[in-house]
């Protein structure tokens, strides 16, 4: 990696101040994306602002009908949280399926959400669950927050601080992993909650995680795997690569939607 300044602030305010003063500084949380990019010299920030010293960004709590997860909460902590397992078992199971043990003990929910990797698991879950993303300066609905591949509503230097998730009536997730990277190559998160039935897709689309209106309508009318089984996904919206064509991914989205509904029960 190239040389950079290293900061380890102990408050959100200090972190935001450093980031505001230096547009080429980058915040680092678990480092599961930024660190490999630095090591491969694909990224050359002037400074890295390590958020891991900010204690109050970590932890899971139940707040009425919502689960609130601090941005620095690690995937392992989400996967094993008693609150998450009781309220949204599909989210706990999803967190347990991210990467490998090392990744789950380093990577954070806020980092994954802010990065919005098209193959990451969380964005689809938050879209389907109708979550709200809280930052250092405002709250943003998941629908407004995720704006396509690696794109979010975050302004320069704005930090995700927590994620608020309404507890759904039921939710389920299923994904087909890329054989090599084990990232999602087609994943579907379905939820029936306060905001109605919502279905979000990750891994497969050619512009990041997105909601699928046709499947939402079908499941609203009839919550069953059969209701989505016949829904054809348009391959022109899909990615294609050496691991699978757009047609294959389109097919997988339907299969994973069926399985997600089955998993949701």
């Amino acid at each position: 990696m190239y040389d950079f300044e290293y900061h380890k602030p102990s408050s959100v305010a200090d972190a935001v101040k450093i980031l505001a003063a230096d547009p080429d500084a980058r915040a680092i949380s678990g480092g599961m994306t930024l660190l490999p990019a630095l090591k491969l010299r694909l990224n050359k920030p002037t400074a890295v602002v390590d958020l891991s010293g900010i204690a109050d960004l970590r932890g899971v709590k139940r707040d009425g009908n919502k689960i609130v997860i601090g941005a620095l909460t690690k995937h392992y902590e989400v996967a094993t949280s008693a609150e998450v397992k009781a309220a949204i078992p599909a989210l706990a199971a999803m967190a347990a399926s991210i990467g490998d043990t090392q990744v789950r003990n380093r990577g954070t929910m806020g980092g994954s959400v802010a990065n919005n990797d098209p193959s990451a698991d969380y964005p689809a879950a938050l879209l389907a669950l109708g979550a709200t993303i809280q930052t250092d300066r405002r709250t943003i609905s998941a629908d407004d927050f995720f704006q396509g591949m690696f794109a979010t509503a975050l302004e320069a230097g704005e930090l995700v601080t927590a994620i608020h998730i309404p507890v759904p009536e039921k939710a389920g997730y299923a994904k087909m992993r890329n054989p090599a990277s084990r990232y999602s190559m087609a994943g579907v998160f379905v939820a029936k909650g306060p905001a109605g039935v919502r279905v979000a897709v990750n891994g497969a689309g050619n512009n990041g995680s997105y909601r699928h209106a046709g499947m939402e309508a079908a499941l609203s009318a009839n919550w069953s795997a059969d209701a989505v089984a016949g829904i054809k996904v348009d391959p022109s919206d899909m990615n294609g690569d050496i691991h699978g064509s757009a047609e294959y991914r389109a097919h997988l989205v339907t299969v994973m939607a069926k399985r997600a509904v089955t998993n949701a029960g």
């Binding site: 699978g244 064509s245 294959y248």
Partner: peptide, 11 residues
Amino acid sequence: ATPAKIWNIIH
């Protein structure tokens, strides 16, 4: 025999 290859055959 990757998943995509086998699916192509079946499909």
